[in-house]
């Protein structure tokens, strides 16, 4: 068994416990996130857990990489608290406003700066955007095979993983040559709790911050400039009940009500 170098792409998302405080900015069409604590997107924790388990079994190195403003280091500290070896943050105004494609391009550039690797792991989709696109896109940019909806990873040999992935109405087992990109579901494992010593790891290990210059990326392919998609508009869905008041004698009102419900298809025809 040879040790493996693994990299997990981590997305910081607003803590779901505070979603009642989230609102949409009608001007910028983005979420107002001020004052909302940020966490590691839950499925990314499954990806970290899987990498830690593989490292415990085979040895190697577990790195996490993320893209965001400087305070994303607080989220990466939680990855350190879980036991990862290295955390890298791509942080630069040039990365801002990225859609999934520009995000994937930036992450792929960052990953290629981290040296040799065997596995790149993702949560299958993020808690907030839920597109599920970034993993396969990163794999394309890095020119390697990828699988999504992965719920089990075994090793056929040192250079091949046997992956069980969920499909509609069943599952598929595929052998994939390394290096590969795998996007995992919640069924793959139960992420460990941060141990008490995580409080030391989180505060003593430093996150490495890379700018767009450090990554030597083409600025036309990152951030808003590199995004072929954008959000032209957002709308709040207003949930409102249709109401109508029927007046008259009780028996007559009841007959009218039944008739209206029949017309609406709520009650069967007489």
């Amino acid at each position: 068994m040879r040790p493996l170098n693994m990299i997990i792409c981590v997305k910081p998302v607003p803590d779901s416990r505070y979603w009642d405080r989230l609102s949409l900015d009608p001007r910028t069409k983005t979420l107002r996130r001020e004052g909302i604590p940020v966490i590691i997107s839950p499925l990314d924790k499954n990806a970290i857990e899987e990498a830690l388990r593989i490292k415990e079994a085979r040895g190697g190195k577990v790195s996490v990489i993320s893209m965001g403003p400087q305070n994303t280091t607080e989220v990466l500290a939680m990855a350190y608290a879980l036991g990862v070896d290295e955390a890298v943050l791509l942080s630069d105004r040039a990365f801002a406003g990225a859609d999934t494609l520009a995000t994937a391009f930036a992450l792929a550039c960052g990953i290629s700066k981290l040296g040799e690797f065997d596995l790149v792991l993702f949560g299958n989709e993020s808690l907030d955007g839920s597109t599920g696109q970034v993993g396969p896109q990163v794999a394309e940019f890095l020119d390697m095979p990828s699988m999504t909806r992965v719920e089990k990873i075994d090793f056929a040999d040192d250079d091949t993983v046997r992956v069980k992935s969920r499909m509609e109405g069943g599952y598929m087992v595929t052998e994939v040559k390394l290096p590969a990109a795998l996007a995992v579901t919640k069924d793959i494992n139960l992420p460990r709790l941060m141990p008490v010593f995580g409080a030391l790891w989180a505060t003593e290990k430093q996150t490495k911050v890379l700018s767009s210059v450090d990554c030597a990326v083409d600025k036309e392919k990152i951030g808003l400039a590199g995004s072929p998609t954008w959000v032209p508009d957002v709308a709040n869905i207003e949930m409102k009940r249709k109401s109508e008041i029927i007046k008259g004698e009780p028996a007559q009102v009841a007959r009218q009500l039944v008739e209206k419900l029949r017309v609406a298809g709520v009650l069967p025809e007489a």
Binding site: A77, A81, L193, P195, V196, G198, A199, T203
Partner: peptide, 19 residues
Amino acid sequence: LSPAEEMARKIAQEYTERE
């Protein structure tokens, strides 16, 4: 709180929510 004390709180909070 120091960063380590803040993280100690998060660790206990996560434990409490799960266990």
